[in-house]
Amino acid sequence: MTAAAREEGGPLVVVGAGVMGTGIATLALVHGVPVTLVDLDRAVLDRAEVAIARNLRTAALLGAAPPDTAPGALTTSTSLPDALTGSTAVAVVEAVTEDPATKAAVLARVSAAVPEGTPLISNTSSIPIDELAAAVARPADLLGTHFMNPAYLITTVEVVPGPRTAPDVVASATKLLGELRRTPIVVRDSPGFVTSRLLHPMINDAARLVEEGVASVEDVDALMQGCLGHPTGPLRTADLIGIDNLVDALDVLHLRTGDERSRPCGLLVAKVRDGHHGRKSGRGFYDYEEALP
């Protein structure tokens, strides 16, 4: 973040208004940071505004909002150039789909439009940051984060500098996370980093057990909760992550590590094919009354 941007109250620009983008936007807003949320689809932005309003209420009810801080102002835009023209952004968070080519294309456009030294943050669960750095004008400005869903409630964030990330950019990003009352844990760049490298193959294994008829969805989750202390169960966690995002991340891990445990099992692939993506679609391993945007 640039000192000038912070002094002038520059916004956090979030590109991508899906579940993660709305969660990250909520986190910033709840701590008084203005947000410009960008998505090419106006309908997606309209749903995101509704979700953010709901998230802000939830954060307040659960004590996740500082009681003495007024929420930041939210601006939305369907034009990335318009959102970045004359930018004084504190940082730009890319939160589009977990696809390397899509993320690289967005980051390339962002890096061409913002001043040198503005942190470019790719929120990714699996893609190596140095791989994405090949697409940007200034690899020193790029680093990764892995916010967990819901970002406005989970207080620990994985931070991933690439080999070419500048130390002052890491310092700026971790300072911003501190202002958002998040605990940043910095890890070395690699496919899946720490959390996805451990969690995603485990979820894949859990889905495979259901596919093989070893146990029901409910019983797999109950056993993991009751016997091993997993807070929600792996399959309910898959619904929260988004099964489509999970499969994309598993594909990245399998391709880059060769680990067969990361090859998405047939049940996960079938759910993606059928549009059963989890909470955001209203149906995944479980059914939900309301789909998330």
Rank of each mutant, 00 (worst) to 15 (best):
V160P: 01
G117A: 10
T174R: 11
G192P: 00
G162P: 06
V157W: 04
T156V: 14
M148T: 03
P139L: 01
P201C: 06
T118Y: 07
P139K: 10
D189I: 06
A135C: 02
T174D: 11
T155G: 12
S125K: 00
A134Y: 00
D130W: 03
G192S: 04
I129T: 01
E131S: 12
T124W: 00
F193L: 10
P128W: 01
V194S: 06
D130Y: 01
T183V: 15
P150D: 08
G162C: 05
T183K: 15
H146F: 03
R197P: 00
A166M: 12
T155P: 04
G162W: 01
P163T: 15
D141P: 03
Y152H: 14
P167C: 13
S125L: 00
G162D: 09
A133Q: 09
S126D: 07
A135H: 02
H146R: 06
P184K: 09
I185Q: 13
I127T: 07
R138K: 09
R182F: 06
L198R: 11
T156C: 06
A140L: 08
A166W: 10
E179K: 13
P139E: 08
A173T: 15
D189L: 04
V186M: 11
L143K: 05
P161G: 09
L198Q: 12
I154V: 14
T174V: 12
S122Y: 01
E131G: 07
E158D: 06
L198A: 12
G162V: 03
D189E: 07
T156G: 01
T156R: 14
A173Q: 11
D130H: 10
P201Y: 02
N123S: 05
G144A: 03
E158V: 03
G192I: 00
R182Q: 14
V194N: 07
S122P: 04
E179N: 13
V157P: 04
V159K: 07
L180R: 08
G144K: 04
F193V: 08
P161I: 11
K175D: 15
A171G: 09
P128Y: 05
S125R: 00
L153S: 04
A134Q: 13
V160A: 09
L180P: 02
E131R: 14
L143Q: 03
T183P: 05
P163N: 14
